[in-house]
Design a protein around this nucleic acid. Structure first.
Length: 110
DNA sequence: CTATTGACCTTCT
DNA sequence: GAGAAGGCCAATA
């Protein structure tokens, strides 16, 4: 079946991450769920791993359910992710993002 | 080809 | 409320 993303789960993730507005962040689970949880949130991270070199996809705007920068270690530098988020005026709670203020909800209802 | 790990989340005990 | 286990799909060894 040719779902909107059913063809390429990866492209779907890239597309959504690319649509993340500035100063907002999304979570792996939310994205995976939006796609239909057909592959688990894990695949989302793997997909992003292929995009770390691509500046078209702000992987730094994607964090885990806890708001922690889980994939920060996979970036060029372990602090690059935090730095980028800080430049976006994103609030930080210790080592995690303030999801209460920057949790971007996918346009499911909007 | 089989086994293990991996940027995770949900649910049961 | 906290902790542990399972599940999902894919890639790498």
């Amino acid at each position: 079946m040719k779902n909107s993303f059913g063809n390429d789960f990866y492209e779907a993730v890239f597309t959504i991450v690319r649509l993340i507005p500035e100063g907002k962040v999304s979570t792996y689970g939310d994205i995976a769920r939006f796609l239909g949880i057909g592959s688990s949130a894990r695949m989302v991270g793997w997909a992003l791993n292929s995009v770390v070199d691509r500046e078209d996809v702000p992987c730094h705007r994607v964090v885990n359910r806890n708001g922690e920068l889980s994939g920060a270690m996979h970036f060029a530098t372990p602090t690059l992710m935090k730095e980028l988020l800080l430049k976006e005026n994103i609030s930080f709670i210790g080592n995690a993002v303030n999801l209460s203020e920057h949790r971007w909800v996918i346009e499911l209802d909007v």
